[in-house]
Amino acid sequence: MQEFIKEQIIVRTVSKFFTPFIQLYAFYVIAHGDLGPGGGFQGGVILGASMILYVIAFGMDEGRKRVSQKISDIFVSTGVLIYAGIGLLCILAGGAYLEYAELPLGSHHLASHLGIYGIEIGVGITVAFVMITIFFETAKKERKK
Protein backbone atom coordinates (compact mmCIF):
# COMPACT_ATOMS: atom_id res chain seq x y z
CA MET A 1 0.00 0.00 0.00
CA GLN A 2 2.79 2.37 0.95
CA GLU A 3 4.58 1.72 -2.33
CA PHE A 4 1.34 2.05 -4.21
CA ILE A 5 0.65 5.49 -2.79
CA LYS A 6 4.19 6.67 -3.49
CA GLU A 7 3.40 6.38 -7.18
CA GLN A 8 0.35 8.57 -6.85
CA ILE A 9 2.10 11.74 -7.96
CA ILE A 10 -1.19 13.53 -8.73
CA VAL A 11 -2.56 12.86 -5.25
CA ARG A 12 0.67 14.05 -3.65
CA THR A 13 1.03 17.19 -5.74
CA VAL A 14 -2.59 18.22 -5.34
CA SER A 15 -2.68 17.60 -1.60
CA LYS A 16 0.62 19.41 -1.07
CA PHE A 17 -0.75 22.33 -3.07
CA PHE A 18 -4.09 22.45 -1.26
CA THR A 19 -3.02 21.90 2.36
CA PRO A 20 -1.92 25.52 3.03
CA PHE A 21 -5.10 26.89 1.47
CA ILE A 22 -7.29 24.60 3.58
CA GLN A 23 -5.37 25.64 6.69
CA LEU A 24 -5.73 29.32 5.82
CA TYR A 25 -9.46 28.79 5.37
CA ALA A 26 -9.59 27.03 8.74
CA PHE A 27 -7.98 30.04 10.44
CA TYR A 28 -10.40 32.32 8.60
CA VAL A 29 -13.36 30.27 9.89
CA ILE A 30 -12.05 30.36 13.48
CA ALA A 31 -11.33 34.09 13.36
CA HIS A 32 -14.64 35.04 11.72
CA GLY A 33 -16.91 32.99 13.95
CA ASP A 34 -18.20 36.23 15.47
CA LEU A 35 -19.13 37.74 12.10
CA GLY A 36 -20.53 34.90 10.06
CA PRO A 37 -21.18 31.18 10.19
CA GLY A 38 -18.42 29.06 11.63
CA GLY A 39 -16.35 29.25 14.75
CA GLY A 40 -13.85 27.26 16.72
CA PHE A 41 -15.44 23.87 16.21
CA GLN A 42 -15.85 24.03 12.44
CA GLY A 43 -12.50 25.73 11.92
CA GLY A 44 -10.79 23.15 14.11
CA VAL A 45 -12.33 20.32 12.13
CA ILE A 46 -11.13 21.86 8.86
CA LEU A 47 -7.63 22.33 10.30
CA GLY A 48 -7.57 18.70 11.39
CA ALA A 49 -8.87 17.59 7.98
CA SER A 50 -6.04 19.40 6.20
CA MET A 51 -3.50 17.44 8.22
CA ILE A 52 -5.38 14.18 7.61
CA LEU A 53 -5.33 14.87 3.84
CA TYR A 54 -1.57 15.31 4.06
CA VAL A 55 -1.16 12.05 5.97
CA ILE A 56 -3.36 10.12 3.51
CA ALA A 57 -1.21 11.33 0.62
CA PHE A 58 2.23 11.03 2.20
CA GLY A 59 1.86 8.30 4.80
CA MET A 60 2.11 8.15 8.56
CA ASP A 61 5.88 8.69 8.92
CA GLU A 62 5.91 11.85 6.83
CA GLY A 63 2.87 13.12 8.75
CA ARG A 64 4.50 12.43 12.10
CA LYS A 65 7.46 14.54 10.98
CA ARG A 66 5.09 17.50 10.64
CA VAL A 67 3.01 16.87 13.76
CA SER A 68 4.90 14.71 16.20
CA GLN A 69 3.04 12.61 18.74
CA LYS A 70 4.34 14.78 21.58
CA ILE A 71 3.19 18.03 19.99
CA SER A 72 -0.29 16.76 19.17
CA ASP A 73 -0.68 15.36 22.72
CA ILE A 74 0.30 18.71 24.21
CA PHE A 75 -2.05 20.69 21.96
CA VAL A 76 -5.02 18.38 22.67
CA SER A 77 -5.02 19.60 26.26
CA THR A 78 -3.84 23.16 25.52
CA GLY A 79 -7.15 24.12 23.94
CA VAL A 80 -9.24 23.08 26.95
CA LEU A 81 -6.72 24.82 29.23
CA ILE A 82 -7.08 28.07 27.25
CA TYR A 83 -10.86 27.85 27.55
CA ALA A 84 -10.90 27.06 31.26
CA GLY A 85 -8.06 29.51 31.90
CA ILE A 86 -9.99 32.40 30.36
CA GLY A 87 -12.84 31.46 32.71
CA LEU A 88 -10.47 31.60 35.68
CA LEU A 89 -9.05 34.95 34.50
CA CYS A 90 -12.60 36.30 34.58
CA ILE A 91 -12.87 35.25 38.25
CA LEU A 92 -9.51 36.89 39.02
CA ALA A 93 -10.73 40.06 37.31
CA GLY A 94 -13.68 40.17 39.66
CA GLY A 95 -16.46 38.64 37.60
CA ALA A 96 -18.20 35.28 37.50
CA TYR A 97 -16.67 32.25 35.75
CA LEU A 98 -16.61 32.93 31.98
CA GLU A 99 -17.97 36.45 32.43
CA TYR A 100 -15.77 37.92 29.72
CA ALA A 101 -17.01 41.47 30.11
CA GLU A 102 -15.11 41.78 33.41
CA LEU A 103 -11.71 41.18 31.80
CA PRO A 104 -9.54 44.31 32.10
CA LEU A 105 -9.29 44.99 28.36
CA GLY A 106 -10.75 48.44 27.90
CA SER A 107 -14.50 48.61 27.53
CA HIS A 108 -16.86 45.78 28.52
CA HIS A 109 -17.85 45.43 24.89
CA LEU A 110 -14.29 44.86 23.72
CA ALA A 111 -13.42 42.59 26.66
CA SER A 112 -16.41 40.37 25.91
CA HIS A 113 -15.51 40.24 22.23
CA LEU A 114 -11.89 39.32 22.93
CA GLY A 115 -12.90 36.73 25.51
CA ILE A 116 -15.13 35.02 22.94
CA TYR A 117 -12.24 35.14 20.45
CA GLY A 118 -10.01 33.47 23.01
CA ILE A 119 -12.33 30.59 23.74
CA GLU A 120 -13.00 30.05 20.01
CA ILE A 121 -9.25 29.65 19.52
CA GLY A 122 -9.14 27.21 22.45
CA VAL A 123 -11.99 25.13 21.02
CA GLY A 124 -10.33 25.16 17.59
CA ILE A 125 -6.97 23.90 18.93
CA THR A 126 -8.52 21.05 20.90
CA VAL A 127 -10.86 19.93 18.10
CA ALA A 128 -8.15 20.04 15.42
CA PHE A 129 -5.63 18.03 17.39
CA VAL A 130 -8.18 15.53 18.71
CA MET A 131 -9.22 14.83 15.10
CA ILE A 132 -5.57 14.39 14.09
CA THR A 133 -4.95 12.12 17.10
CA ILE A 134 -8.00 9.96 16.42
CA PHE A 135 -6.96 9.54 12.80
CA PHE A 136 -3.35 8.72 13.66
CA GLU A 137 -4.35 6.18 16.28
CA THR A 138 -7.19 4.55 14.33
CA ALA A 139 -5.63 4.31 10.89
CA LYS A 140 -2.72 2.18 12.03
CA LYS A 141 -2.42 -1.08 10.23
CA GLU A 142 0.04 -3.86 10.81
CA ARG A 143 2.39 -4.22 7.91
CA LYS A 144 1.87 -7.49 6.13
CA LYS A 145 4.96 -9.65 5.81
Binding site: D34, L35, G39, A101
Partner: peptide
Protein backbone atom coordinates in the same frame (compact mmCIF):
# COMPACT_ATOMS: atom_id res chain seq x y z
CA UNK B 1 -24.31 42.46 25.64
CA UNK B 2 -21.55 40.32 24.12
CA UNK B 3 -20.02 42.48 21.41
CA UNK B 4 -20.24 39.89 18.61
CA UNK B 5 -22.46 40.21 15.56
CA UNK B 6 -23.35 36.56 14.97
CA UNK B 7 -25.80 35.63 17.67
CA UNK B 8 -25.28 31.92 17.22
CA UNK B 9 -21.70 32.51 18.35
CA UNK B 10 -22.95 34.80 21.11
CA UNK B 11 -25.25 32.08 22.45
CA UNK B 12 -22.63 29.32 22.13
CA UNK B 13 -19.70 31.21 23.57
CA UNK B 14 -21.26 33.60 26.03
CA UNK B 15 -24.82 32.80 27.15
CA UNK B 16 -24.15 29.05 27.01
CA UNK B 17 -20.43 29.22 27.71
CA UNK B 18 -20.56 26.39 30.23
Amino acid sequence: ETGVNNFVTAVLASYRGY
